[in-house]
Design a protein around this nucleic acid. Sequence first.
DNA 1: TACACAATGTTATATTATAACAATTAATTA
DNA 2: TAATTAATTGTTATAATATAACATTGTGTA
Lengths: 132, 132
Amino acid sequence: MQKQESLSKNQQIIFDFIEKAKEPLKAYSILFNVQKKGIKAPLQVYRALDKLVEIGKIHKIESRNAFIACKNSNCEVSNATIFSICNKCENVSEINNLKLSKYLTNFEDDTGMQYNKYNLEFFGLCKKCKAK
Amino acid sequence: MQKQESLSKNQQIIFDFIEKAKEPLKAYSILFNVQKKGIKAPLQVYRALDKLVEIGKIHKIESRNAFIACKNSNCEVSNATIFSICNKCENVSEINNLKLSKYLTNFEDDTGMQYNKYNLEFFGLCKKCKAK
DNA sequence: TACACAATGTTATATTATAACAATTAATTA
DNA sequence: TAATTAATTGTTATAATATAACATTGTGTA
Ligand SMILES: [Zn+2]
Ligand SMILES: [Zn+2]
Ligand SMILES: [Zn+2]
Ligand SMILES: [Zn+2]
């Protein structure tokens, strides 16, 4: 079977919902909201999420257990992610900084370990919250 | 109240256990193992973990929901963490790379956001697992 | 068509984490 | 030292996140 081009029914439903959202969504919040579309069980959500993460359409924000659509054409595969997270308003956005991503992709430590993936999360206060 | 110098009883018990471990430990695994010391409930573990993370004695590996002792004198406060994670043997170690940590600490994006913390996790195959 | 694999449906359960409230211990300061 | 305040502990219950196991259905390929 060739590499999948299109999403399956459940994958599409769940991706559409995440894509429309302005903030990262939690699995059970997604479940609650797509029940009208016929998705009834957590596992149906988690399976779709797993696949969407795998193919890079969405990313998991590990520190929040939440999922966000990829808006970065540079990371069609989800092996190199950088996020900016506001600790006050919980706004999350994907950072698209070529210099930084190159730096990280090329990073080598002294242990001989071979890296094929990384996830970086920056925390702080966004401009709005800082002003308050 | 001044900044705490010494750990409380529960904090010490749980820190000792994590410190002796060679791999990151999960909260309920810790709970199971310290029950003989009189710690009976999840909340007792989570409270100690929260405090230990806050003061930088341990770190949470977000992608694994597990905790590891800090072995890096550079990050007595847990606001700047970099980990190396083997996806096969699950070995985790803290990376102490001054150049990289400086680069990240000084990182600024174009949104005017002010960062005071970051967490970076690299994934791949360690030397051992690569050889197999 | 026959095969292999991906995706779905369903029920139950495992794992991770917090709420709420009462009691106790330790540091501060008057 | 006594009163005050903050940190820590103990305890029960429950919330939130995630996976196991198994049967079935869809989909692309040979
Ligand atoms: Zn992305
Ligand atoms: Zn904000
Ligand atoms: Zn550390
Ligand atoms: Zn390994």
